[in-house]
Design a protein around this nucleic acid. Structure first.
Lengths: 210, 210, 210, 210
DNA sequence: GATGAATGAGCGTTCATTCAT
DNA sequence: GATGAATGAACGCTCATTCAT
């Protein structure tokens, strides 16, 4: 009971911090502003978090959770590796389009990570995980005999690069390009590439059916 | 003579600021620290720059110059559009590999750009320019009748996304993947894709020669 | 309870600032010095006042209050307009004599008012009010049929000029003249002048009794 | 020759400082701004004045000269004491009306004089001198047998008080009152008062002629 | 538990003054 | 003589953190 109340209060603080960073950036996040935004006294925050950094770690973990949830929720049929890959891919793009400003939270922490090994580690693991998730479809395809001559982890790097790179540009200026058409291009590009790495039989089959 | 000495001192400050941001991040850049690092008194910096922001704008412009120079220097034979495209592409990858930490300067300013329209505009133009440079090769290919059914600007977005996305991951953790192999993959992937957009005659010809 | 404590602390700061300006002048009033003088940390002052100017506005209002109180307290019998006028007049003189250094606060703010419209407005209203108070006695005298051919507001200007001009000289150098004799002269002068503006009947009567 | 050039340059600085203080106030007078305004390098100013304070002393002396000149120039017939008195009186009022902002220079230095005995002494002597000038007419009247029962120095205090007090109010807000009518009132008031102090014979004579 | 008054180190910036040229 | 680059102390102000209530 007490613990749940404690968690509730802590969440309240984290959510407020998250929103403030998203809207105004890390550099404009003050404990005073946070206390106002979280409807809690300045001293009160210290009951739940030792100091500002502890809050920020929690915010970063919350970001991870948010992103993961959004992307992973898209997957419906995890048995089919190709479908999972496509879903993850489009899931990431949809998320980035739905809330481009979320990027600024990530960027803020990346900027800070230069001098904070804790942030740095979390962000590293964060990208590792997404590379892994991206690679799983490819890996599944390989074990099921679909793709050949491809290192799934490396293709995960590519997928994440594309996803993040487009998100970044999109967050900077949304009128710069047509998001849907560009993401369609990269999806085509990536799956055409994987197509070319399918086994001969399937490739021939695909070509014939085309 | 006088002007050149003035420029020299100003460059000295910008370089110091650049290094400090690259090494310690914007949030740890103080005028005191800068004055120490630039071997100049705190007040002395004010002869060359009205305030901290003016220095930072200059640093951002320096970043632009640095990146542009590194990438554009790679182009040797600008007559051949495909060659230019490949050179620009690999030029970008080589630069990112040569000095991954340069990214931190860009990331720092991106984080700040959320609440600073001046930074924001510069970074936007920055990416616009690189998208344009990336698109020029494709555009040249179209006018010379090589590529079809492709919007060069949109492919520019893709190229920059890939370049930036890989750079980002590489800067975060260089032991996470094999940079050369991954960039080889994306280059293959992108040029295969463009290949598929070549005119029928060339496409058939290409297929035959494979 | 809380509010009163807050007001108490704010007053403490204002009083300290008032004293410092009175003793050392505005140009020697620093936040550090103020914090020392007010027995409060530098940052603590920021709980009560957003910035230095806010403190100074409060000091100016305090000055207004101080002067008003001292002068207005002298009036005992407001039914008799002539008496009120005399009381106000001598009240002002007594106040100026009692604490000539109070003038320095006013002079400091007047100097600053050149480039600060907020100070300027307050000081203008300040003098307006005193002109008004000075004119009220004359006005009363007119409605009760005592004075004729006189514009009370203009005589208010004269009274304030005399009061302020003598105060100023007195504050500069108190051994320069005999304050009581000089103020006696100006009181005589002013009331003789008003006497001359009384209705014929009273004038004759006065002349006869002389 | 050298000296005169030196004086010329020094005057250039003093005039610039005077104008800057008059227009922007002492608190906005910087050596950099002064050097710009005086068309002289910052270091150059140091050839003519040891430091800022020395310039300010010179400015104060210049103020004294300016005021004295304006007032004293009005006197045409110094043989007639009453005329001299009237001329000085109206001369002071005309000067104050012609350039009300001149007051701010005086006020600025008065504010500073609290912590600068040099300024303080100059301003004291300044007022002393004007009291003296104001008293001379009265004194002359006494020795020539016109006024009785009056201490000229004390009446000088009154005259300066009136002059300064009206100037002050006028400088603060020129639309607050009709300057000419008010100065007419105080001149009447003061000379009526002196009239009342003339010897019996003259007084009777005056009354008869009225 | 909860508050917000209080602290003080540290920030960006200004500016009178010095001095090599 | 004349310049303006360079200095550094001092300023107003911010803000994470502490702690008495």
């Amino acid at each position: 009971m007490k613990l749940s109340k404690r968690n509730e209060r802590a969440s309240q603080i984290i959510e407020a911090a998250f929103r403030l960073i998203k809207d105004k950036g890390y550099n404009n996040l003050t404990m005073q502003g946070l206390s106002t935004y979280a409807n809690m006294s300045k001293g009160g925050i210290n009951h739940y978090f030792k100091n500002k950094e502890e809050i920020l770690i929690a915010v970063l973990e919350e970001l991870d959770r948010k992103l993961f949830k959004t992307i992973d929720d898209k997957i419906e049929n995890p048995e089919d590796p190709e479908d999972m890959l496509r879903k993850r891919c489009s899931g990431g793009f949809e998320m980035a389009k739905a809330d481009p400003t979320l990027l600024y939270v990530l960027i803020d922490f990346t900027a800070l990570s230069k001098n904070n090994s804790q942030y740095s580690e979390i962000i590293k693991h964060f990208f590792e995980k997404y590379r892994y998730l991206a690679s799983v479809g490819v890996k599944g395809g390989i074990t099921s005999g679909v793709y050949k001559n491809i290192i799934p982890e490396e293709f995960g790097v590519v997928m994440i690069a594309v996803w993040f790179g487009i998100w970044f540009q999109w967050a900077l200026e949304q009128k710069a390009f047509n998001y849907d058409r560009v993401t369609k291009i990269v999806e085509d590009m990536m799956f055409n590439y994987l197509e070319g790495k399918k086994e001969k039989f399937f490739q021939n089959f695909d070509v014939d059916t085309n």
